[in-house]
Design a protein around this nucleic acid. Structure first.
Lengths: 197, 197
DNA sequence: CAAATTCTGCATCGATCGATGCAAAAAGGA
DNA sequence: TCCTTTTTGCATCGATCGATGCAGAATTTG
């Protein structure tokens, strides 16, 4: 009954996500986006309302994919809990290595957005907090299991240890954006594991 | 022989530093700055060349003050090495608590700038790396002393442990900007100490 | 084929950005 | 007091920002 769209919405979101990821929200202009997307601005505004809504869609896509990937690692029944945390760190290190360009990592869109927008956009801050809660809950659950079966020797509150692991991951992202190499990032993760086992 | 300036350069740098700290580099317009400073743009451009040079001056001021403060804690001869690291974390937590507004911390201008600019401004990235080197060197030295006198039980390379402590501090800043409360930040620091002693 | 509906391409809007030109104001030195 | 030098206040520059208006193209339905 009407003219169909000339683009695939998922592909647009994927490209928009990578563009925001690489340059940040404010520094990505709608013109930059449309160049990367191969679309006119009016098409983007027609489909996604405005820049901020498009960003929210892209951020949701990133968080859904990333958190699902991390939860899958944390809930792998084939490994003991401590090994799952190790595997999580290994995944962080691998993605940071893959996304390195010009000596600087892209970091993580979640951490980047927390730094850029959480303090002045309550709605986006809430999206980020909900995502963080999911990851913290999964981490705390696995750590609790590890504490009961002895694989994780720390007697600290599991929720506190989950916050610690989450903070170290964020610290690794920051170090990557600051130019740290793979060995430096790996040393951080290895030391963090010492606090758990 | 000529008209004197109506402002104190140090006060201007202090105010500019706090404005950039609160809102970031790109999101602070020259008009925002001049409103905060009580000066006209032409005065600011006359004294500091342009926005980026003013930012570099403000960033240098921040790094000099912050790093000097942290090095003083790390080099306090009255405490054993492990206690100095604990005191460093305590200082981070205190400043984050002091700089909290609307539930969100200001974080740290160094970390904020690393996330916003390090990947696309090589000169500023170099300034940040030099500052990080100073802190890492001091941390590694103190950790080495602690390893030899037994206060720090970890057998890991002192430089690697220094990177770990630095990353945890960055992680605490990120958590603070994400809305974490004092207790959550303290739990992160406490767990990090477990990896050293 | 014609009517209805949506999408696309181009031009452009007002707002804001960093930065500058210029004349008046303010000081010191003669 | 007058000359020289610098700062200051005001107006404004060109570029870019996010966003929109509108006519024509494209497609489904009748």
């Amino acid at each position: 009954m009407a003219r169909p769209r000339s683009f695939d919405e998922n592909q647009v979101l994927e490209t928009a996500m990578r563009t925001f990821w690489a340059h940040g929200y404010e520094s990505t202009s709608t013109r930059d986006l449309c160049d990367a997307l191969g679309l006119d601005r009016s098409s983007v505004y027609n489909a996604f309302t405005n820049k901020r809504e498009l960003f929210k869609r892209a951020l949701t896509r990133y968080m859904d994919a990333t958190t699902a990937d991390q939860l899958q690692i944390l809930e792998d029944p084939g490994r003991p809990p401590a090994d799952r945390i190790r595997a999580l760190f290994a995944r962080i290190l691998r993605t940071e290595a893959e996304n390195r360009r010009d000596g600087y990592g892209l970091g993580c869109l979640t951490v980047n957005t927390t730094m850029e927008l959480a303090g002045r956009d309550p709605e986006i801050a809430l999206m980020l907090e909900r995502d963080a809660e999911r990851r913290l809950a999964a981490l705390a659950a696995i750590i609790g299991v590890g504490q009961r079966d002895g694989g994780i020797g720390s007697a600290r509150d599991a929720a506190a240890l989950a916050r610690f692991v989450n903070a170290v991951i964020a610290g690794i992202r920051v170090a990557a954006q600051g130019g740290a190499d793979d060995a430096a990032l790996e040393a951080i993760a290895a030391a963090a594991m010492d606090a758990l086992v």
